[in-house]
């Protein structure tokens, strides 16, 4: 029986952050996300594709076919200028949020 895992918050932010560094295909993003987060973020892999297709529909990423290092043709995703703008906004919002949480935690620990 397939078990549900807890959704990752700010998944769009994570996906756009990955693509800001380089173009990637779906499975590559899953592996890279787990590696960079030291396996903290391990999402149900299929949930990546609605996110990617949604970002593509909104114009934040665009897709193309290319041969991967494995020799197989894969659908790569590339962040657009619009996506880069959204990434900057989301980063700022996240940093504000983290700052506020940290401030509350530090005050309670003082």
């Amino acid at each position: 029986m397939l078990k549900k895992k807890q959704n990752i918050e700010h998944t769009q932010l994570l996906v756009l952050s990955l693509l800001a560094g380089e173009d990637m295909y779906g499975y590559q993003m899953i592996v890279e996300l787990a590696r960079r987060s030291d396996r903290t973020f391990e999402m149900k892999e299929g949930t990546l594709y609605p996110i990617l297709h949604g970002l593509e529909k909104e114009g934040y990423v665009e897709a193309y076919q290319q041969t991967a290092p494995t020799g197989r043709v894969r659908k790569y995703y590339h962040i657009t200028r619009k996506g880069s703008g959204l990434l900057s906004e989301e980063k700022e919002a996240w940093q504000r949020y983290c700052g506020a949480v940290n401030a509350v935690l530090e005050a309670s620990l003082a």
Binding site: L2, K4, K5, K44, G46, T47, Y49, P50, H53
Partner: peptide
């Protein structure tokens, strides 16, 4: 692999919302 991908019905429903 299917287990790692997650519930196909949920994935399909989430995809349908994008189209």
């Amino acid at each position: 692999c299917a287990e790692a991908m997650g519930d196909p019905v949920e994935i399909g429903d989430a995809l349908a919302k994008q189209y």
